[in-house]
Design a protein around this nucleic acid. Structure first.
Lengths: 333, 333
DNA sequence: ATGAAAGCGCTAACAG
DNA sequence: CTGTTAGCGCTTTCAT
């Protein structure tokens, strides 16, 4: 049953029913009594305005897309959860797409999504800024907000971490503990995020009058396999580091795996700081010292930003930058 | 630009353009040349049929809902990832909802979702089968498939684990290693899934002429907090168990946390088998022996089932039951 | 091989 | 305070 059948049943016009149901009764001066009558009948018959019809008419569907590189990564699943919650409260729904950390897949999905009708898109890019991606983004017929992995070419609104500060935080902590030979497991080096974090690490080192040994800078990508390979490279060096920073959440999996293989004790043989707090960070032995991103806040800001863009309000800030926090546990000695 | 503007530009009717674009050119005998001309122009102008218009006309939107209790739980994020992938390949999109393991929230979201237009819904229920839930489900105007946590009252198609066999597998493994005093960290006891797993454990014990000590059966819920509390209860018993089974993926977090607090060595002081494989299962010390669900297969089956139901094909089986696998590592001695 | 026209369910401008 | 009507963009009969 749809609202026009409901209207028939109540001997009202669709218009009135529509107005009552959409909460515009007040505005159009529908009598309180009528509104209530409509509401009751709608409740009774489980009738609600069909979003397709409404969407077609209004040019909006009440749905925003969420494109993430890997929903399996707890950072992104946390993000998804919070974003969905915020948007649901505002009566919007979320369409999920996972690009499997694959640049090619990302562009394809994006091009596909842009043709479909969405009110907005929150995009956590794979990291690289291919020309095709940028072109696809430019031609988006709806607002787009970028989270997490940003790149400078982009003029779209972004919500991201102060990655450079976070990098400094991680390296600074290690330096404060007297470590000098510090390794760095990077993610995708074309990614602005990774570069900023790395810059932060370098800056902290330089400030201490030190330099990173290039042989100890490894890793290329955000997959688990990439993490393992990078860790492998780092920990196979003849002159082993006494500390390592994982610049992304997947990397730590590689470090732990390889360290276990090589029977390296953490933190006795190797101190570790890992980006991204995970459900199990505190549970491994030793509990991991991490750089925690304010996931919920990022999600909230992104959701708010996209809502503002959708409703046409000029957002106060176009680029929101948030600070990470050091969660000190036992993996650094 | 929409297809009728495209039609104008090509001096064709919307009809023809629509037919060409939807691949029905053949069927309606649109000339090859015309089809190509339309395709080219569409490509050039980034035009595709608006799904809202098409959806309204056809009564389908090409979107299925996915309702999970906790996208942050790696079982569900794995599920989401695979489901989304399968459905995307079929040209469908996924609407994600997270019910935060909350029964109340689940019903609310569900009632809301049922009013909106979806082609189908894949539901991983919170676990309990409230009357309101069942009623909401019955009145669904589109096909629904239940995954993971099923309950007997339900007549809808389901994809789930052979939970009883999985329970037997876990307990059997412990018994084979000579453990006699076995504890069990349960999830939500009103959940059929939890009960089936528990039944399996009991069955294996009985077969060995043993019985579970009721004091060693703890836990109530699928949240992390519930896991911690249950583990607390189990490990504070005067007569401590020599082994424990976590009947769900969150529980193991509690066990590890409490075991660490109490300075219990695994597996020396306590052997552990945990349901659900996690990205970090192999990385903790000691690496965890787990009961692994075939997540991808579950996802694939569920996606296929919902597609069959949507397209009206009679599915071969209504209830698909899959087997878990024991992943033996080092947490049992 | 192509087109005209109806209608999917809704909202909003325009009456009254 | 309520109703009439047009039209959102599309697919699909029915015509030609």
């Amino acid at each position: 049953m749809n609202i026009s059948e409901l209207a028939d049943e109540l001997n009202l016009s669709v218009t009135t029913v529509s107005r009552a149901l959409s909460g515009q009764g007040e505005k159009y001066r529908v009598s309180k009594a009528t509104v209530q009558r409509v509401l009751d009948a709608a409740e009774k018959h489980h009738v609600a305005p069909d979003p397709l019809g409404a969407g077609l008419q209004r040019g909006k569907l009440g749905m925003v897309g969420l494109l993430v590189p890997d929903i399996t990564n707890s950072f992104f699943s946390g993000l998804a959860r919070s974003i969905e919650l915020v948007l649901r409260k505002r009566g919007m729904t979320v369409q999920l797409c996972d690009t499997a950390e694959d640049e090619h897949c990302e562009v394809e999905v994006l091009e596909h999504i842009l043709k479909r009708r969405l009110d907005g898109l929150i995009l956590a890019p794979v990291g690289k800024s291919s020309e095709r991606l940028l072109r696809a983004l430019e031609s988006a017929p709806f607002p787009v907000v970028i989270v997490d992995r940003i790149f400078p070419e982009i003029t779209l609104p972004t919500v991201s971490l102060d990655n450079e500060a976070a990098g400094r935080l991680a390296a600074g902590h290690l330096l404060a503990h007297g470590h000098r030979r510090i390794a760095c497991l990077r993610g995708d080096r074309e990614s602005h995020t990774d570069r900023a974090r790395f810059r932060g690490v370098q800056a902290a080192m330089q400030q201490a009058g030190l330099q990173l040994d290039p042989a100890l800078v490894q890793g290329a990508g955000y997959t688990r396999a990439a993490g393992v390979e990078g860790a492998q490279n780092i920990l196979s060096q003849p002159h082993r580091p006494d500390a390592v920073i994982s610049l992304n959440g997947q990397g730590i999996l590689g470090i732990l795996e390889v360290a276990a293989e090589k029977n390296l004790q953490i933190p006795a043989d190797l101190s570790v700081v890992a980006f991204d707090e995970q459900p199990w960070s505190a549970l491994v032995k030793p509990p991991l010292t991490t750089i925690e991103q304010p996931v919920e806040l990022i999600a909230k800001k992104a959701a708010e930003l996209i809502c503002e863009k959708i409703s046409g309000t000029k957002p106060k800030q176009r680029h929101i930058v948030l600070q990470a926090v050091l969660r000190e546990r036992k993996s650094v000695a």
